[in-house]
Design a protein around this nucleic acid. Structure first.
Lengths: 214, 214, 214, 214
DNA sequence: ACTCTCGGGACTTCCCGTTCTT
DNA sequence: AAGAACGGGAAGTCCCGAGAGT
C-alpha cells in the first residue's frame, strides 16, 4: 500500500504550502492544513513528526523541483548568462504556479531564528545563481567589474525582488514583463556591450510547464 | 505627567521591534515584549489597543524615521541618483543599527494577508525610491532604456536584496562593502557611461548617525 | 487584591485534589479541574506554571497541614507512643475529610518515576513516624526487639495500610474502628506488656477538626 | 501456529507490565509497549481488544502466578501462620523479580474509579491473607485479641507496606531483611508468646524461584 | 492465521491575546 | 499601570479501526 501513502503525503505537502503562503508559518494551523488536504491531523502526524517536519518537507520538495530544473537546463547546454535569464523567468513562473515554490521562499524568511531547517530554499537559489555567475565569469562572458561581488549581489537582489514582487498580487503576464524589463537593464550591468545581442531577455520555452511532472 | 508616558511608550515600541525581529510577528508574545521593556502587559494594553496596534506603532515609527531621512536629504539638495545611492547605504546602516527599521521590513512581509496596516513600511520605501527615479529621469540623468520599468524593478529588487542580506547575520562592514559593490554594477545599468564619475558609490557622511535623534 | 488571588489559588488546589483523587494524576484534566473550581484554565495557568506545578502545590499544601498537626501535637506534649496512635487516627480522619491529604498520598504513588516533586507527602509521613519511634525508643517506651527496624517497618506499613483502606470506599466510623483494632494488636508488638494500659488506642480529641483552619 | 502466537502474547503482557510499572497506567502508551515488545501496535490489537484488555491480561497473569503459589503452599501442607510469613517473603521476592506482579499491584491502585477490572490483584492478595488468618484462628494459633479485625487489618497493612517499600528503589536483600524484621515484631502481636519458636521469620526455600515456570 | 501500514478522531496541555478590577 | 482572570485555540499524540500484505 505504498501508493496511497505517497499520494497522501503529497497532498499534505501541497496543502501545507498553500496555507503557509496564505497565512505564514506561524499562523497556519495543522488543523487547517489537514482540512485543506481533505485529511485529518492523524494522517498528518503519521507522515510528519511535527509542524517543522512538514515545513522541512515543503522546503525539500521545493528544492527538488529546483534541482530538476537546473539539471534539465544543464542537459540542454544553455550558456551561463542565458541560463541566469531563463532561471529568473522560470522563478517568476514557478512562484506563480506552484505553491510549493512560493512557500519555500516565504518560509525561509519567516523561520529565521528557528533552528536551521534541513534545507534552506532561498539559500539553494543563491547557490545556483552563484554557480552560474562563476561559470559566466570563467567563460569571459561578464564585463570587467571594478568591485568583486557586484554581479553576485545584484543577482541575489534580483531573485529577492522577484520573490517579493510576485507576492504583491501582481498578474503573471505583468510579472513576466517586469522580469524582462529587469533584464534589459541588468544585462547592461553584467555583460560587455558587444555581447548584448547574444541573449534573449524574454522567457524561453524551457522555463514553463514541467513542474507538475516532478 | 506626559513625559514619562511618552518614554514608556517608546520603550514598548522598541521592545516590540526587538522581539518581532527575533521571533517574527506571530511568535513574539506580548508577555516577552512587556518583559523586555521592563513593564507588564497591563502597561502595554494601556498604550496600545492590541497587538496589531503595537505593530502599527512600530511601522509608523519606522516610517517616521524614513521620512525624516528623506526630508534631510531633500534639504541638503542631493541630486537624485546620488540620493538613491545614499538611501541604500542608509538602509543598510539602519537595518543594522535600528531594530525598528528591521522590524518594519520583516513585519510588512509577514503580515501580508492580514487586514492592511496603517502604514506599509516596505511600500513606503518603494515609493520613495520610485520618486527619486522619476526625478532622475526628468533630470535626464538616466540612460535610455529599451524597456520601461527597468530601473524601477531593479531598484526595488536592490532594496529587497539589502533587506534580506542584512538578515543573514552578515557584519555591517561587510554589508556596506556589498552595497558598494552592488552600486558599482548598478550604475552601469542606470546612468549613461559619461556620467559615471559624478557619483560616489560609497556611503556618504549623511547616511549614518541621526536615527537615535528621532 | 491579594485576598481574592489567595482564595482563587486555594480553590484551584482544592479542585485539583478532588480530581486527582477521583481520576488519578494522569487522567484528571486541567479542564475538569478548572471547571470544578468554577474558574477557567486561564486562571489555573496564572497561578501554576503547569500541571506538575499544581501537583506540587497540592503536595505542599498537604505537607503544610501535616506539619501543623505535628507542631500542635508537640506543643501539647503528647508522649511519643500515644503520639503515634493519635497520628494514625488523625490520618484516618484527614484522609476521609480533606481531599488534599488524600490526593497527597495518591499522587505520591502515581508520580513515581517522574522527576521528583518538590515535596513527597508519603515520605514526609514516614519521616514523622520515624522521628516519633526514635523518641519512643530513647524514652524506653518500646519493647526490646530482636531485629532492628521492626517497629519502623511496621509503622510504615500501618500508614500505607490506612491509606489504602481509606480508598476502598469504607465509611469513616468503620475506618476508625479498624484503626483502633489495628492498634490493639500493634501495641502488643511495640511496647512492653506492663505499659499497655498507659495508652488509649481510640482517637483522642486532638485528632480531628483543625484542618479547615490551616 | 499456536506456539508463536502464545509467545507473542506473552511478550506483550510482559512489555505492558514493564511500561505500566515505569509510567503508570495512563501514561504508558501502546506505542511504547509495542516497541518494548519488539512488535507493532497492529500485533497488540490483534491479541487484545483494547488497552484495558491488556491491563486485564496483566492482572490475570499476575493472579495466575499467585494462585499457583498458593496451590503449592497448600500442597506442601505449610501451617497457616508460617504460610503467612512465607507469603510475604514471596511477595517481596516476586515484586522485585517479576514485573507482572509489580504491575498488578500498581495498576490495581491506579485504576480505582474505572469500571471494575476482571480481576483485582490487590484484592486477591487480601483474600488469600484473610483466608490464612481464618485458618490460623480456627487452629487456635492466634493470640486472643481484644478487638476483632486486628490481625486482618495488620496483615493487610503489611502487604501494602511491602508493596510500597519495594517501589522505593530498595535492594532485594535489604527488602528481605526488612520483611524479616517486620515479622519479628509482628509475631508478637499475632501469636501467643509460647508459640513464638514454632515459626521461622526468614524466607524459606519455597518462596523464591518458581515464577518463571508459570 | 496473523501482522503491519496507514489513517481517524478525540482530547490535553500549554499558553496567548484580552479584558476587568484596583 | 499592575494584578488577576478569561476564553479560545494550537500543537501534539494517543487509542483505536480498517484495509492490505504475508
Amino acid at each position: 500500500m505504498q501508493a496511497r501513502s505517497e499520494r497522501t503525503r503529497r497532498r499534505l505537502v501541497h496543502a501545507g504550502a498553500q496555507m503557509f503562503n496564505r497565512c505564514g508559518y506561524a499562523s497556519a494551523t495543522l488543523g487547517q492544513i489537514a482540512e485543506v488536504a481533505g485529511l485529518t491531523k492523524g494522517a498528518l502526524y503519521f507522515h510528519f513528526a511535527s509542524k517543522d517536519g512538514l515545513v522541512d518537507a515543503v522546503q525539500e520538495q521545493a528544492h527538488a523541483v529546483l534541482r530538476e530544473f537546473v539539471r534539465r537546463q544543464w542537459a540542454a547546454g544553455v550558456p551561463p548568462v542565458q541560463a541566469l535569464i531563463d532561471m529568473t523567468h522560470w522563478l517568476a513562473w514557478a512562484l506563480h504556479e506552484d505553491p510549493v515554490i512560493r512557500a519555500g521562499f516565504r518560509i525561509t524568511n519567516e523561520c529565521t531564528g528557528r533552528q536551521p531547517p534541513v534545507t534552506d530554499f532561498h539559500q539553494a537559489w543563491i547557490v545556483e545563481v552563484l554557480r552560474l555567475i562563476d561559470r559566466a565569469r570563467e567563460a569571459g562572458e561578464l564585463r570587467d567589474h571594478t568591485c568583486a561581488d557586484g554581479p553576485e549581489t545584484l543577482m541575489s537582489a534580483a531573485v529577492c525582488g522577484i520573490g517579493v514582487l510576485s507576492g504583491t498580487g501582481i498578474s503573471y503576464p505583468e510579472l513576466r514583463r517586469r522580469v524582462g524589463a529587469l533584464w534589459s537593464s541588468l544585462l547592461t550591468a553584467l555583460v560587455p556591450p558587444e555581447h548584448m545581442e547574444r541573449y534573449d531577455v524574454r522567457a524561453s520555452a524551457l522555463t514553463t510547464g514541467f513542474v507538475a511532472a516532478v
